[in-house]
Amino acid sequence: MDKSIEEIWSTGFQNNKYLIPPVVVDLYHKKSILTVDKLKSTSKKDNWSIIPIAIITLIFFIIKSKLILGIYIAALMLSMFFLNRKQLAFLETINTSESCFDYLKKLQKWIKNNVKFYTRLLGIGLPLFAYVGCCIFILESNQYEYILESYSFKKLLTTSISILASFSIIGIVGYRVSNYLIYGRLIKKIDEMIDELDLLKK
């Protein structure tokens, strides 16, 4: 044989008169559907796990005689649950009957936008909400007057900025790490399939 299988394969896809073999299309179609289904399942489980955590958190703070703080944190968690649910609604709109390359590209774009959205939310929103939580804790612990008497305005301002910056870093790093651990392999599969399909189309 003058040409290897690899050369024939490569030449075939570089020539415009050749199309991607149906068996290859079917393979990627099935693989992509399985990946999308896995992403849906993982996302739902991840989001629903917030509910029991919120309940446990509320009970914990009630036991610690911090009812208002417990309600506040549980309410934030539930808000995150419904926000996630709204964001995840996109996954139900994916039409797997169309080209797998097309809907994988849409999914990839949605994932990137989601990462940007939650990075900003946790980088900016978490510090503010966490700071309010700290204030509630101080008020419930009857430490408000003690702190005002013990610290100057400058010291309070510096401490507040440090707390906000710390929560911002914790929020961003925590989200990125958890997102990688839970969804990293699925996102990598989606990116790899898109790259492979893109090469086959060229």
Rank of each mutant, 00 (worst) to 15 (best):
I170E: 04
K188C: 10
L39N: 02
S49D: 05
E140M: 03
D46S: 11
I68Q: 08
S79Y: 08
T35H: 05
S41Y: 03
S65E: 12
I147D: 04
L58S: 00
S41L: 09
V132D: 06
D102I: 13
S43D: 04
Q87E: 13
E92N: 11
I111R: 09
G125C: 05
T159P: 00
W48V: 07
F117M: 11
D2A: 13
Y131S: 14
G125D: 03
R120W: 15
I20F: 02
V24G: 05
S97K: 13
V115P: 01
Q143H: 10
L19F: 08
A75Y: 06
A54N: 00
K105P: 04
L148H: 10
A54H: 00
N142V: 07
S49M: 12
I59F: 02
W110S: 09
L69E: 03
K66H: 04
C100N: 12
A74L: 01
D2T: 10
E145P: 00
Y72D: 02
N84R: 00
G171Y: 05
L39E: 04
L91I: 05
G133K: 01
V177L: 14
K155P: 00
G171F: 06
G123H: 07
E140L: 02
L126Q: 03
L67G: 02
I53V: 14
F101N: 12
R85Y: 12
E149F: 09
L39C: 05
N179L: 03
L58Y: 01
M77F: 03
K116D: 10
I194Y: 02
I63Y: 07
K38L: 12
G184D: 06
A89R: 07
P127L: 10
S168I: 12
S10Q: 13
K17S: 15
E98Q: 08
L91A: 06
V36Y: 04
L91H: 02
N47C: 13
Y175R: 06
Y28M: 14
I94W: 03
A75P: 02
I59D: 01
N179G: 01
G133V: 04
A89K: 08
N95C: 05
L67D: 05
E192P: 01
D195K: 15
F90M: 06
R176E: 11
Y183C: 08
K45N: 14
A75V: 08
K86W: 07
D198Y: 07
L83N: 09
C135V: 14
I62L: 03
D26K: 06
C100R: 08
T119S: 14
L19C: 10
Y28C: 14
V132N: 04
S152I: 10
T35A: 15
F129T: 11
A165N: 09
S4P: 03
G123C: 11
S162Q: 13
Y146R: 13
Q108R: 12
S43K: 02
